[in-house]
Design a protein around this nucleic acid. Structure first.
Length: 629
DNA sequence: ACGCTCGCATCAGGTGGGAAACGG
DNA sequence: CCGTTTCCCACCTGATGCGAGCGT
């Protein structure tokens, strides 16, 4: 039942769209910038704006919305360049109250702390509702699927009267959830929901089109996920890394949509990193207030616009500063040591950016379990730290042996990197995913050669359809595999859009992506964990890792991963056992880390990285692709 | 002379590390 | 006392501004 209930609830909640204030100038922004190729620009632009502001002022504050504004780049699309400043906040953003959050929203995934989660294959894959289990209701009672995203008053409430049915109303509740009875936090609200279905657009039907979403940098996410992703939160806000980046298909090209990310509690627990692994310790604080929604700066915009290129949320910042919610539409307020699950919401709106209150089916939600993370103020797991260093361009300074030449390092690492990058560049970049064909990338990855590899390597793309995913966090292995199946994938392949290459994120361009893909990765990193076990042993992480991958795959990865890594690579570091410290400028040594870590063997991640890179090179597409049923 | 391209310098901002501060 | 949070640091990326060089 739960399933159904959940779905309903979720759907409902989802359905309940946010309300967009008229002011939404959305129209302007929203204008399809057809021509404008670059979404990137948007991201770029802000600097100046941001700059305007004192350091603290983040783009977000500045109103990332129009990154380009002011800058030379301006709005490529022709969008109106708004001055930086709050005023500039994207209409959409404004519309969605950030704060919405109800304290109690959990998106629960797995019941148990780790084990459960992990164990469940589903963690990563959507799984049948039935499987899911546990959704936790918030103590508060409020359950909402969306909860988080919707502010009681905000989003949902305001919103659509029509949707009041869902609960909304004034915010009181989260509609759906409640109604539904079931668990509130079901991860995949929309989808199934009763409304769900209804809510979900019918394929083909205009508004109702059912969208499909790919998690572009899924491989990278998986790497982190294996170790239990951690995201730093700071007062001034810290960007996510990996950041959320999606490709969307299946939208009505002419319809307008608002796209935003909501971050909700993934479980009702408070977590602590102990003994080299994450363990629960007490209950989560559901009363945390603060903005939980980040509206994509380009919202609202047309379906064609959203489908044209990768949609990334690289500027999204995470903070623990509750006071930042008002002004910072770019910041999502989280609580340290709590586990969160990002959700992507796509809401069809009018050209003006106003949601159609009468049609609750216009909201679709997508959840990628592999994007779950624990918010921390300081990294706990050195594996994560190393992954961040290895893949985040801004952290290059912390790489061992980082040399401008990069080549200098004997290790495979660097040498490899360039290579892959290049490939990346050549291959991927081409479109950075899409170029010529957006699809393809995918395609490549998906089908062919890679397929084989995929086993070892994560699939390139994961496509998700609206919430529908029953399982919350967990990925359904079956699904997983299935998805790989050509059939599944093909669809995408079909779609070829002339995309621009623009990488969604200005930052982390190639490198990043590459990194995402695993290109850049170098490999080694130390772990803090005493246990030293690869993720397998870890409580939580392990689960993750496995969750998403089919067992076989997992095995392979596991074995291969650590092993495969070219010794050389690590060796580089390895020398380091002692060196490590020295070499690593500031690396934190993990107790357990032993030389092993440094040892030649690469960690799975590393491996993966390479694998990914390989994959990427081939097809590139690392996208998580979920389809709802 | 004018316009365009390229390269360098500068600035803003992001990153993790480490130590200090804080709080239970 | 211990765990968590905050602040500052050095390092790096990316964007922008400016000037030099080159072609028309």
């Amino acid at each position: 039942m739960q399933l159904g209930e959940q779905l309903l609830g979720s759907a409902a909640s989802l359905a309940g769209p946010p309300f967009y204030p008229p002011e939404s100038s959305g129209g302007q922004r929203g204008q399809p910038s057809s021509g404008s190729p670059q979404r990137l620009d948007l991201d770029k632009g802000p600097k100046k704006c941001g700059g305007a502001g004192p350091g603290m002022l983040s783009e977000a504050e500045a109103g990332e919305p129009f990154p380009g504004a002011g800058s030379k780049q301006g709005a490529p699309d022709g969008r109106k360049a708004a001055p930086c400043g709050e005023a500039e906040l994207p209409p959409a953003a404004a519309r969605y109250p950030l704060d919405s959050l109800s304290p109690e929203r959990y998106y629960l995934q797995s019941p148990g702390p780790q084990g459960a989660e992990l164990g469940a294959p589903c963690s990563l894959f959507p799984y049948p509702a039935a499987q899911h289990g546990s959704v936790y209701q918030a103590p508060g009672g409020a359950r909402y699927p969306y909860g988080s995203m919707l502010a009681p008053g905000g989003f949902s409430a305001a919103v659509c009267p029509g949707r009041a049915q869902f609960g909304g109303g004034g915010g009181g509740g989260y509609q759906y959830g409640q109604g539904a009875a079931g668990p509130l936090y079901s991860p995949y609200p929309a989808a199934g929901s009763c409304a769900g279905l209804g809510a979900l657009a019918v394929p083909g039907s205009g508004p109702g089109l059912r969208a499909q979403v790919f998690l572009c940098n899924r491989p990278l996410w998986l790497k982190f996920h294996r170790h239990q992703t951690e995201m730093i939160i700071t007062k001034q806000g810290r960007r996510m890394f990996p950041f959320l980046s999606f490709n969307i298909t299946g939208l009505n090209p002419t319809a307008h949509y608002n796209v935003f990310v909501e971050v909700v509690l993934a479980d009702p627990n408070h977590w602590r990193f102990q003994g080299g692994k994450w363990v629960t310790c007490g209950k989560a604080d559901n009363n945390m207030q603060g903005n939980k929604v980040y509206v994509h700066p380009e919202s609202p915009n047309t379906g064609s616009h959203w489908m044209r290129q990768e949609i990334s949320f690289g500027k999204l910042k995470l903070t623990n500063n509750k006071g930042a919610n008002n002004n910072n539409t770019q910041m999502i307020v989280l609580q340290s040591l709590h586990k969160y699950q990002p959700r992507l919401h796509i809401v069809e709106v009018t050209e003006d950016g106003v949601e159609d209150l009468n049609d609750s089916s216009k909201t679709q939600t997508f959840i990628f379990p592999e994007t779950q993370f624990i918010a921390v103020t300081a990294y706990q797991n050195t594996d994560i730290t190393q992954l961040k260093i290895d893949h985040n361009p801004f952290a290059k300074g912390f790489r061992d042996n980082y040399d401008s030449s990069h080549q200098i390092v004997p290790g495979a690492r660097y040498s490899v990197q360039p290579f892959f990058q290049e490939q990346f560049v050549n291959n991927l970049p081409p479109a950075r995913f899409y170029n010529g064909e957006r699809t393809v990338p995918q395609t490549n990855g998906l089908l062919s050669p890679q397929q084989n590899e995929e086993v070892a390597n994560p699939p390139q793309r994961w496509f998700v359809t609206p919430v529908q995913q029953p399982g919350t966090n967990k990925l359904d292995m079956n699904s997983y595999e299935t998805e790989y199946s050509p059939s599944t994938l093909l669809p995408y392949g079909i779609k070829s859009l002339p995309l621009q290459t623009s990488h969604a994120l200005g930052y982390y361009p190639d490198p990043t992506f590459s990194s995402m893909a695993g290109w850049g990765s170098r490999g080694s990193y130390q772990r803090k964990m005493a246990t030293g076990l690869p993720w397998t042993s870890r409580t939580s992480p392990p689960a993750f890792s496995e969750d998403h991958l089919p067992k076989e795959k997992v095995k392979e990865e596991i074995s291969s991963s650590w092993i495969e890594t070219p010794p050389s690579i690590k060796s580089l570091d390895s020398n380091d056992s002692g060196i490590y410290t020295s070499a690593c400028k500031r690396r934190r040594l993990s107790p357990s880390t032993s030389s092993n870590e440094n040892s030649p063997t690469m960690k799975c991640e590393d491996m993966n990285a390479e694998d990914y890179s390989k994959d990427t090179s081939k097809g590139m597409g690392y996208y998580a692709f979920y389809t709802t049923t």
